[in-house]
Amino acid sequence: MLKSRIIPCLDVKNGRVVKGINFVDLKDAGDPVEQAKIYSDGGADEICFLDITASNENRETIYDVVERTSKKCFVPLTVGGGVRSVEDINKLLNCGADKVSINTAAVENPRVIEESSKKFGSQCIVVAIDAKKKNDKWEIFTHGGRNNSGINALEFAKKMENSGAGELLVTSMDRDGTQVGYDNELMSNITALVNIPVIASGGVGNLDHLVDGIKLGNASAVLAASIFHYGKHSVKEAKEYLDSKGIPVRI
């Protein structure tokens, strides 16, 4: 039976982790490679890096991070943030990323998704959808949540599936950082609409939220950042909790 996946996400800025793991045994708490290794040793099903480097001159730092991580972690590695072109995707894959997550570029130029999924295969193309509820529908935001595109998130999700995306990473902007749980209404609407796997993101504050993302949101995978970083819970605890709630996980 296919297992539900737990994906810890690390925010990386200028090649260093922002909001690092609160572990005492780390030699260098800012090194994404060391933190990714702790997660993969702890049973993470995949690792996600979100590059939030603002300036173009520091963009190169992520390639070095990905290259070093892929030599240490032997679970799938997804990298997102600032990916604009087929060439950017190519570079990340060559450095050892297994999947690349594309957000703003997918909205502004959907051809990037068509071209890259043809060129590299759908399996490595993840479209990141940042959505916010407006009246009774959800709209897509780009540029790290700063710009409202006005595009309907559900229609966009379907369009991205048709363009060749292999997975969707759906973040509720309303919930992100609030620790009140995923927007499971948004998740279940999208999962019902598309046939590709959906990764739920945004708002996890406790282990029950992970359970809800899978049971109520019907997500194939759940992504979380802060509950793991600050040592509140380990990936292992999260898996054992899901298992105790009858959700199949890899233990």
Partner: peptide, 16 residues
């Protein structure tokens, strides 16, 4: 055969 959409494709993740 994903049984008319009952199963997601691609088959992605950890399986036994």
């Amino acid at each position: 055969d994903n049984q008319n959409g009952k199963f997601k494709l691609p088959h992605i993740g950890w399986n036994e």
